[in-house]
Design a protein around this nucleic acid. Structure first.
Lengths: 101, 101, 101, 101
DNA sequence: ACCCTCGAATGTTAAC
DNA sequence: GTTAACATTCGAGGGT
């Protein structure tokens, strides 16, 4: 009597479907994470310094992130300089900011 | 010529003041966070299960009403997946789910 | 003079190769993580409670043994705090706690 | 019968004590977090750009972290160069690394 | 008024 | 076993 069809059915199958899709994707994700681990192990096997390798990966990731970050901050500052647009000093600051890009 | 007083000066000192206040407060916050960590370490040192301790803290944070509400939804979903049939709470949830839909 | 072939070359190309493999895999992983997010968004779109859905996924991840073990400890702690007296599970936990200590 | 003294008592009072200490500290932490929020609100009130202010705070935090990070990576690389210590090219690389510090 | 993006914070997992 | 990085999850603030 606990699995009666009817109103509840659609909800149940909907939930089941979502849960299955998510669990499937998480399996794939885990599988790839394991692959990454294997690559590090292999690198270690040929004598590479794993920590240094991780540093390289991290640096390259950060470089991209930093680039985006710097641009975002610059945009924010340019916008914040709008506060000053009606003062002489502000005009100079805006010029400088524009040049610095 | 970039540090002359005037309009810019007030703005700069204002910003500086806010930054200092915030950084001071964040130091205090971090200090307390460290204290909390220390307490968990100490608890572990006397043989307590840290993960369970965290669970307790988390549970107490949810007030009773929220907890009941959230549990009801969770039970409904678990029932949809047929995962709930063998617990007393589950039986109740199954009833609720049937009625609520 | 820094790019002459020889000992250094093999090392460099080896490192490069590993870095590329890892970065490729990390891209795939991120892509799947994004897919998972999308599924949650879609679930929300049809009116499901995302937080509850996450709870379900988390529960199913713990295998039965772990779950029972962890629940037993949690119950013991809650009992110690007098928070468990009014649930059936709580009653059982109280018994266990008395016996286990 | 659920709060009998004896073996269980020490455990219960121990847990209770830890929970209370943690909850007390978390209250303090939350209080400070609220203070920080208030400062941002106040800054906004005098016309400052809150996003830019957050950027400043974040940048200053990162600068400190980056400094430490760079040093750590440099150390790793110097160590990794040990791999090369027995080749002529390696010797040159070690020299360069030492000079670059 | 609601969504949604962003940042903060926690929990988990891997490396040493 | 401990420490630190990493990913994930939660909440708050802003925009539409």
């Amino acid at each position: 009597m606990s699995d009666q069809p009817g109103v509840g059915h659609n909800l149940a199958s909907q939930i089941k479907s979502f849960v299955e899709r998510i669990e499937r994707l998480e399996e794939e994700k885990k599988s790839i994470a394991d692959d990454i681990k294997d690559v590090y192990v292999e690198a270690k096997g040929v004598g590479l310094d794993v920590k240094a390798l991780r540093d390289v990966i991290r640096l390259r990731k950060q470089d991209a992130a930093d680039r985006a970050e710097r641009q975002a901050i610059l945009d924010t500052y340019l916008h914040a300089l709008g506060m000053l647009a009606d003062t002489p000093l502000g005009q100079a600051a805006i010029k400088r900011a524009g040049a610095a890009t």
